[in-house]
Nucleic acid binder design. Sequence first.
DNA 1: ATGAAAGCGCTAACAG
DNA 2: CTGTTAGCGCTTTCAT
Lengths: 364, 364
Amino acid sequence: MHTVPVASKRRQEVITLRDVAKRAGVNVATASRALSDDRRDLVSDETASRVVEAARELSYRPNPIARGLKTNRSYTVGVLIPDLTNPLYPPIVRGIDDALGPLGYTPLVANTDNDASRERMSYDALRTRIVDGFVIATAFRRHPLVDEAIAADVPLVLVLRNTDARNAWAVCVDERAGVTGAVEHLHEQGHRRIGHVAGPQVMSPAFERFLGFTAAAAELGIETSKELTTFAEAFSIAEGRRACRELLERGAGPTAIIAANDLLALGCLDALGEAGLRCPQDVSIIGYNDMPFAERFMPPLTSVRIPGYELGLRGASVLLDRISGEDSTPRTEMLSPRLVVRASTAPPKRTRPAGRRRAVAPTR
Amino acid sequence: MHTVPVASKRRQEVITLRDVAKRAGVNVATASRALSDDRRDLVSDETASRVVEAARELSYRPNPIARGLKTNRSYTVGVLIPDLTNPLYPPIVRGIDDALGPLGYTPLVANTDNDASRERMSYDALRTRIVDGFVIATAFRRHPLVDEAIAADVPLVLVLRNTDARNAWAVCVDERAGVTGAVEHLHEQGHRRIGHVAGPQVMSPAFERFLGFTAAAAELGIETSKELTTFAEAFSIAEGRRACRELLERGAGPTAIIAANDLLALGCLDALGEAGLRCPQDVSIIGYNDMPFAERFMPPLTSVRIPGYELGLRGASVLLDRISGEDSTPRTEMLSPRLVVRASTAPPKRTRPAGRRRAVAPTR
DNA sequence: ATGAAAGCGCTAACAG
DNA sequence: CTGTTAGCGCTTTCAT
C-alpha cells in the first residue's frame, strides 16, 4: 500500500493561466494581457474584466518562475550581508525589505561572514537564481568581487561603504560629519586632549572615521599627535581593550576617547577599568553605531547613531530605480548620522587624569 | 546614438545547456543527464566526462528557474520571522542558512512584524514563488495561518513554538526545563519567595514558561500563590516595569523574580530601582533568552540561554528531510536551554526586603 | 546509451 | 482588440 506521491497531489491544485483563459472564454495571450499592469489597455474593458473575474473566482496565482523564464527577470534582489547577528545589519535588511515588498520584489538575503569565499559562493548562487540586482553591505575598501560585478555591469548598490569608484552606485553615511559631531561635542565640554581608537583601516567606515577625526581635530585646533591614535585590528571588544590599553600606556593622557565603533568603546571601558580610571569622571568615551541597548551599558554610552533602516530603504530604492532604468547615472547618496549623548561623556576634570605630568596641582 | 539595450547585452553572456551540449557534441537531453546527480548513470562515463568538461570550460551555470518550471521545485524555502531586529532571531536565521546552503537551497526570509496581515502577504508571496517549504518562527499559540498551512499539507516546520497539533513538525526549546533550572538555582541560593513576571500568555514560550514556573515551584515545595505572579502584556521593557511594579505593590515581598524574557527583566530592574530596591542585594532577577550583551547590563544579567543557532539549524534540517520525503512522520525535536549565571542573582538577605512582615528581626 | 520531441506556465511577435 | 505561434532553458517521456 502506497501513499499518493506528493507531486500528483500538488499538481491538481495548480490553477494556470490557461484555466483562467478557458473560463473567461479567451486565449491565454489575451488573459495574460488583461492581467498585466502595463498591457491591460491592449484589451477591451469588457474582456479584461471578464478575465479578472475568472482569475478571482479560481483564485489564480501567476507563476513568477514561468514569467521569469520568459522575461529574464525574477523580481528578486540579492542582499549580501557580512553578519546578520551584528546588530548593525538587521535594521538595514528591514529597510530593504520595506522598500522592496510594495513593489513586488523579494529580497534573497545571504550571510557572507565577511569571508571572501563564502561571499563568492553566495554571489554566484544568487546570480544563478537570476536576481535582478544586488544590495551589498560589505565594508571593505578593496573588494575584488564588487569591482568585478561593477565591471560586468551587474546592477548593484553599495550600502554603508563609501567608494570613489567612478561608476558605483551607493548609499552611505557621512562618516566625517559623524566624527566631527563627536569631536565638537567633546570640545564644547572642554576636552582638549582627545584620543581615537580607530578601527581596521581596510574597512571603509573605519578609514573614513579616522580621516574625519584627524580633520575635525585640526579644524578645532586640537592637538592630534600620532600619540593620541591607536588602531584596532578588528571591530571587537577585545581589540578595543587592547588598543585602548596601548593608548593609555603611551601616557599622552587623553581626557576623552572616540572609538570607531561601540564594541571598541566597550573594550575601552574595560581597559579604563583595568587602569583604575573611571568613565566619565576620568575619561569620556564616545562610541559609534549606537547599538541596541547602548543606553543600558555601564555607563550608558554616548554614541553616533547610524540610520540603518533608512540606509536599507534608500539602498533598495536606488537599486530599483536603476533596474527599471529610470535613472542611469551612477550616484551616491549620503545620509547623516546623529550624536546621541548619554552618560559616558562629561566635562574633563581640571587635572590630567592619566600618568605623567603630575606637575599641575589639583584644583578644588 | 544609442547605448546597447541591457537585455541584449546580458543575453549574449548566458551559457545555456544547449551550448554545453553542442560543444560536447551531444544532445541537450544527454547533457542534462550527464550533469544531474541522479541520472548520470544513464550516460556512458566517456560521454559524461566530455559533457562535464565542456560545462567547465564554458563555466556553465544551470538556470534553476527553468529547472523549477519543469520540476515544480524551486530549491528555496520560505522563512517567516516575526522581527529580525529582535536579537533572538538572527542566530536562528543564521542556523537555517547554514543548514540550507550546503544542500543547494536558498532561504527567502520575510519579516512578518508579528502582524497577521503582513504575515499572510509574505506567506502568499512566498508560496507564489513556489518555495518548497517553510520554516516558521512565530510564537503565537493560536495561529490560523499555520493551521491552514498544515491542513493544506504544505511542508513546514515550526521553530521556537511548542505545539500540540498532532501533525505538526517542530523544533522547540524545553521551556519547562529552562524555568526549572532558574527556580532551582534560586532555591539553592536560599530563595523561598520567588516571583514571576510572566509574558503574554498568547505566546507559546511565555505560556510554557509560566507553566514551568508553577510546576517547578510546586516540585520544590516553594510557595506559588497567585500573589507572586504578574503578567506582562508584551515582551517589552515598559511592560516588564509595569508588571514588576504591580508585583512589588502587592507586598508579597519576593526575594527573587524570574522574568519570562530579558526585556521584561530589564523592566524589572527599572521598577526595582524606582522602588529603592537594589539588585541583587535586595531582589535577584533572572531573565530569559540571554540576549547579546546581557553581561554588560547593570548588573550583568543572569539569564536562561536559548540555543537559537541550533534551533535554526535543526529546523531547516528537519524541513529538508521532510521535503525529500526521507522522513514522513511528524515529529517534534526538543532542544535544551542553559542557565547562565551572572551578577543579578545572589543569596537573599535574611530580612524581608519589601514592605510588610517586619516582625522578623534583622540577624547579624 | 543516446536522440527527438514534447512540454512546464508564461510573454512577445506577428497577424488579422 | 484578439488569436496564433513561438519559444525562454530545462527535464522527461518515448523511441531508437
